[in-house]
């Protein structure tokens, strides 16, 4: 759906992004991951037809954004890092205005506005003035404006920025619910959000893409598959020896033993599929109490740090 070839954008003499190449298939959920100032927002603003590239080609559905941006804008919904809201309008009036602006037919406007309000859970604030809304609602209204014309491509720049933990979970769920109906590009420097929402990651650093692939692919590339943490009650060493014999386990270590509780970290072999069911079966079979089993939370973080540090060092 999207082909990016040699995309470069200069602000004066400073290259915000340089020679980017990537492709995105229809229906994919792609995460742009990078530190502040890495070039995520510039990339998304170019893809959202807000900015024009200095050089390079971007085609969306075969249409070049430099040649016919007007046609592309009909197919995209864009939520910038700060939602573009007119504070004096009510939510309903604002979404009606945006729907009309984006070419939704007159007979369809009311139905689309109602549908998108339902989808983003803002129906109850339909008559409220935007200036009076909380930050969480403002962000949802921002998402609603990007969705109101039912675009093929949804571009979300830091959609959870400034939200509290509850609101982050709600926004994440909203984005997950959109999966399948739209191709979604989102950026964030919140690693867990990218990890939980996206099919594929594009890691961007100093205006260049330093890695791309799924979380597992990136982890493998940088030395090992996704680690699994296992917390159990009892003798950690006994658990370690038991799990070391499970097929597909490349390495297992006892991280700590706190009295009755032990924490193990298991690294699967590169080609291994999902290991967790086999590990659970082994522990239950040996009558060892399993307290928790999960992928290591810091995995993506370490991948991200390695990638960005590698680039900095280079």
């Amino acid at each position: 759906m999207i082909e990016v070839d040699g995309l470069t954008k200069y602000y004066g003499t400073h290259a915000a992004i340089r020679d980017l190449h990537f492709s995105i298939a229809r229906g994919e959920v792609i995460g742009f991951l990078g530190l502040n100032g890495a070039g995520k927002t510039t990339t998304l603003r170019v893809l959202g037809c807000v900015l024009l590239p200095t050089s390079g080609h971007v085609t969306i559905d075969g249409i070049d954004i430099a040649r016919d941006p007007h046609e592309i804008r009909k197919r995209i919904g864009f939520l910038p890092d700060s939602p573009p809201l007119y504070n004096e309008m009510t939510v309903g009036n604002y979404l009606t205005f945006v729907a009309e602006l984006r070419g939704v037919g007159r007979s369809e406007v009311a139905r689309r506005v109602a549908a998108v309000e339902e989808q983003t859970a803002i129906r109850e604030v339909n008559s409220e003035v935007i200036a009076s809304l909380s930050h969480g609602y403002r962000q949802r209204v921002g998402l609603a404006q990007a969705l109101v014309h039912n675009p093929q491509l949804l571009i979300l720049d830091e959609p959870t920025s400034g939200l509290d933990p509850v609101q982050i979970v709600e926004m994440r769920q909203l984005i997950k619910n959109l999966r399948g109906a739209h191709t979604i590009l989102l950026s964030s420097h919140i690693l867990s959000e990218i990890s939980q929402t996206c099919d594929r990651l594009l890691v961007i650093q100093s205006g260049e893409i330093v890695a791309q692939g799924s979380e597992e692919q990136l982890a493998q590339r940088l030395g090992g598959a996704a680690a699994i943490e296992i917390e159990l009650r009892g003798d950690g060493e006994r658990g370690r020896q038991l799990l070391a014999s499970v097929a597909g386990v490349a390495q297992i270590e006892l991280v700590r033993q706190d009295g009755e509780t032990a924490l193990l970290r298991c690294r699967p072999a590169l080609e291994a599929a999902e290991l967790r069911p086999a590990l659970v079966r082994a522990l239950v079979g040996a009558e060892i109490d399993l307290l928790r089993i999960d992928r290591a939370a810091s995995q993506l973080e370490s991948v991200f740090l390695k990638l960005t540090q590698t680039k900095e060092a280079a």
Binding site: G48, C49, H70, R73, P84, V98
Partner: peptide, 14 residues
């Protein structure tokens, strides 16, 4: 100043 220009820039409006 408010960033709402992004709404107009990203909409099919010349």
């Amino acid at each position: 100043q408010s960033g709402t220009i992004n709404l107009l820039y990203s909409s099919p409006v010349r």
